[in-house]
């Protein structure tokens, strides 16, 4: 609706913000302590998690409340393969993780998208996600409730030599590059033909159907891409946190990307990323406030959502547009 209508000034402001954020992430190991660097790595993965989730949520309006199942599928596949066949290259583990996530999305998507919509889709995916969670917790090969511990950071084979990612901050930079590539891929999907079609579908599904487009098939494709990239994010996080537990498949983990999307703004590509960063910042700032951290985090979330119903990015760009006093733009916004 509002995509592509940005005035050039807001676009350049947004680009500057993205560049600044990328710069902060890229230089973090140079000036921050190890704890913050570790958290930043987790946040980068969560950004990919949330943006890939938003492919479904932002473009089709469907809430998948079982997204953590894909994340866990990727993480567990990669970590398990790392143990079972350690001689294979790390990138194969990642790709396998993504593939398993995509397959799981295909399976769940075929069932859930065909049968349910709206809130029923959310609860159906929630139930299926909880099934995955329970099965992981009962599986001996996956370490049951204690998960897989001591996951090694890989040595990757470049054609000119090998690169040991377990040394220093190397895996962090690897994560930075990998997440950048995945975000680039998602950007391409979001702004490409599929993204445009889905956005149009959300506005007027009837008219698009009239043109003979198989609505469900496109949604399924979006769901599979969303699940696959989420699983890739999961595969990347395993060597970073070096432990994975079934908690990453639990429904409360599925709630995270929803939270990030709504907080940041689901109608914009970068909205979930902003949501993830703001939420992590909130948690980080309150980490030493023992006893009152829940009150501050909960209160801040409530205030933000009540004051900024379009999410942070949505509200900011609305604000920026108002500031430009472009009456025509405002009219467009109202009609949208």
């Amino acid at each position: 609706m509002s995509r592509g209508q940005n005035t050039s000034s807001t676009t350049s402001a947004a680009n500057a913000a993205i560049l600044a954020a990328a710069l902060v992430f890229a230089t973090l190991p140079l000036w921050a302590d190890k704890g913050l660097v570790f958290l930043a790595g987790i946040v980068m993965v969560q950004i990919v998690f949330a943006v890939s989730f938003n492919l479904m949520f932002g473009l089709t309006g469907l809430v998948s409340f079982g997204q953590a199942a894909f994340f866990a599928a990727g993480a567990y596949t990669a970590a398990w393969l790392g143990r079972a066949v350690p001689e294979l290259p790390f990138l194969i583990f990642c790709l396998a993780g993504g593939l398993v996530g995509a397959l799981l999305a295909l399976l769940i998507g075929v069932v859930a998208l065909r049968r349910a919509s709206g809130i029923y889709f959310a609860i159906l995916t929630l139930a299926l996600g909880q099934l995955v969670y329970t099965l992981i917790g009962k599986s001996d090969a996956l370490g049951r409730e204690d998960g897989l511990v001591g996951i090694k950071r890989p040595v990757i084979d470049l054609f000119v030599g090998t690169l040991d990612l377990s040394i220093g901050d190397r895996y962090y930079y690897f994560l930075l590059v990998a997440c950048g590539i995945l975000l680039g891929l998602l950007w391409w999907v979001w702004h490409g033909q599929l993204g445009r079609l889905l956005a149009a579908l959300r506005q007027d599904a009837e008219r698009i159907r009239f043109f003979g487009v198989n609505v469900r098939r496109y949604r399924e494709i979006a769901f599979i891409i969303s699940g696959g990239v989420t699983a890739l994010a999961g595969a990347l996080v395993a060597p970073w946190s070096q432990i994975i537990t079934p908690a990453i498949a639990h429904w409360s983990y599925s709630a995270l990307p929803i939270l990030f999307c709504l907080l940041g703004g689901a109608s914009r590509f970068w909205g979930p990323a902003v949501g993830a960063i703001v939420f992590a910042g909130l948690e980080y700032a309150t980490r030493t406030m023992v006893g009152v951290s829940e009150l501050i985090v909960g209160g801040a979330l409530l205030v933000v959502v009540l004051a900024m119903p379009g999410g942070i990015v949505g509200t900011l760009s609305l604000l920026a547009r108002k500031l430009t006093k472009n009456g025509k733009e405002r009219l467009n916004e109202q009609s949208a």
């Binding site: 709504l262 689901a266 006893g291 909960g298 209160g299 979330l301 959502v305």
Partner: peptide
């Protein structure tokens, strides 16, 4: 969907308040 995040925030507030 925004009601989800607002009521989720309230759940966290309930937890903090009870504590």
């Amino acid at each position: 969907s925004y009601s989800l995040i607002a009521t989720y925030a309230m759940l966290i507030l309930c937890e903090g308040g009870v504590k």
